[in-house]
Design a protein around this nucleic acid. Structure first.
Lengths: 338, 338
DNA sequence: CCACTGATTGACAGCGCTGTCATTCAATGA
DNA sequence: TCATTGAATGACAGCGCTGTCAATCAGTGG
């Protein structure tokens, strides 16, 4: 015990000395290089173990070794969508020995820029970002950084490097067409904070386009400037229906949380689904599908987006080249609520 | 353009040269030290901006500067509980300029140990971990690492350094007492994968203890070895009730997801709540409270756990000393389902 | 027996930054 | 006028590791 310089951590030098080899050989041994003799390997491993050696990757990365950190910037963790994406990312990265370094932008371009600067200063191996209105400075940093960058969620805009996601405008449009084909004519909308959530806005835009195609217009629209939640959907539908005038025959919600709230309102108010009122959401969350009457919705492949984005980073790092755009698509889920 | 060595990033040296000061002065200026003259500060900032300089924190941290990374190890992201905790963590850390570096252990002590080793090798400023049966090696690394470590969720076991959480055993016990006081006598349980989720197991244990206190035993018990979900809760209750014999008057679910599934089963099967059957859950999720009939449950303060844990790390880093154990408590939510 | 080959190992020089001290210099008071 | 002080700046020496290239050495064929 007295031999140790108290709290200082053992370095590679000490491991090497103990194993009777040079630093670089110890380094190679511990990194699993296949040029070291089995005996050397064992000596080094034993030395490291007995010293309680812990590799310092800061030094390694600085000296030119690879980093196994991947920056991840998401706008929020409150919306279940992003934990789902993160799960996909984490899962794929973990298997390759990488770690996500997380930053939350709160849908704010300024914070986002700050995060990019911060995360890049750790020289990560790659960056995954769900953009929230990137500034010019943000774009400049990303394109100048010389690392794989994946913009996720959306594929409606041109990415700096790569993009993985789906067309939200397309999803809204598809849902409108589907519902109109099923005979609905008085279609209304209940949504959450659209000013910040531009993907929800894109869906609404697509939905409207679908109505226009069929010569229709929105038969009612309530948007509340709060984050989406079940309670908000419930309240939103309540407000919409109180509005007097001919009631809609269907309500498209900004997402499933909101839609489930709508379903609950109907249950509580004795409105029968889908005869009196039909409901559609977006995301394909488990909760919606486990409802007594399954929710009509669009399944977004959130975890797949994460997995695919991670895959792009890893692929690029291993030298392969990758698609600039990956559309993971979406699928209509015909439930019982419409 | 030709002046630049093509893709090599500008270093502090170049910034300093351009500003006509020494490296260390440039360093101080960019780090916001208050010993540099305003003029010097401006010169350096201009030089940095015009060069597109991006600080390299790898080098900084290696040279003895502080790290702003905090390792975070969670067992899963599928269970909404952990994103909630992560949200609290992230929020507090972000405000202090820190970033969580994430690892998911999948409830596996071996993976957990691997993650600890990996994350510590980046020399983070602190570590937050929701333990999943830490190995001796894990404990050894944590106690030898000389950084603030917070074990979260549970406070039923003795931590290496600090702990923030609640007593799950206590929560189960409190719920049992509450329900028994309300007159329920035939109490059953429906749960998910308890083998891996030892916190759910602890709640069940506490619940049982409460029954024993009152001279009762569990009037039925279904546990399914799958991750918790609404669908699983629905299925679980269905199985429990098919079991023949006298039906229970209340079912305690392993968490709110499961309990909501139970509520849905009742709705679909025409079982009236809470007359024919009462239901209780755990967590206090938004969805349960927005149900047509609000769920009786125990609110766990998940985000608060994250915030508090982050607070402990930050406090310790700033030299203050911190409580070894922080109990964030829980609160009974008396809904309409019991 | 010797040049030659391939497999291991090692010496060296940094990676880019910051802590620690030392230095400079103008302002202050005696 | 000169010693004294404090503010601003700088020189230096690493932090711990890995890429690059050179050296070593046993085994091989001529």
């Amino acid at each position: 015990m007295s031999k140790e310089k108290s709290s200082r951590k053992p370095t590679l030098f000490e491991v090497a000395a103990r194993a009777g080899v040079s630093e670089i050989t110890a380094s190679r041994a511990l990194r699993g290089s296949n040029v070291v003799t089995p005996e050397t390997l064992q000596k080094v491993q034993e030395a490291a173990a007995s010293l309680g050696y812990l590799r310092n990757r800061l030094a390694g990365a600085l000296a030119g070794g690879p980093s196994n950190q991947v920056g991840v910037i998401l706008p929020s963790l409150s919306n279940i969508v992003f934990p789902d994406v993160l799960k996909g990312l984490e899962d794929r990265l973990e298997h390759a020995g990488f770690h996500p370094v997380l930053g939350i932008s709160n849908y704010d371009p300024q914070q986002e820029e700050q995060l990019i600067r911060n995360l890049l200063s750790w020289r990560p191996a790659g960056l995954v970002i769900a953009p929230s209105g990137m500034t010019d400075a943000s774009r400049a940093m990303l394109s100048g950084a010389d690392l794989p960058v994946v913009e996720i969620m959306d594929i409606d805009t041109d990415p700096v490097d790569m993009a993985v996601g789906m067309s939200h405008r397309g999803a809204g449009l598809a849902m409108a067409r589907h519902l109109i084909a099923r005979g609905y004519r008085r279609l209304a909308y209940v949504g959450h904070d659209i000013a910040h959530d531009h993907r929800a806005a894109a869906r609404l835009d697509g939905f409207r386009r679908g109505l226009t195609e069929a010569g229709l217009t929105l038969a009612g629209c309530v948007t509340l400037s709060e984050p989406s939640s079940v309670a908000l959907g419930r309240r939103g539908l309540h407000m919409l229906l109180q509005d007097g005038g001919t009631p809609p025959d269907l309500v498209y919600f900004s997402n499933d949380d909101m839609a489930v709230g709508g379903v609950f309102h109907c249950m509580a108010a004795g409105i029968s689904l889908p005869d009196q009122l039909a409901i559609a959401g977006f995301n394909g969350l488990e909760i919606g599908q486990s409802l007594p009457v399954a929710l009509t919705t669009t399944a977004s492949h959130r975890t797949l987006i994460g997995e695919t984005a991670a895959g792009c980073i890893l692929k690029r790092l291993s030298g392969e080249d990758t698609a600039r755009m990956t559309d993971v698509g979406f699928s209509l889920v015909e439930g019982g609520t419409s």
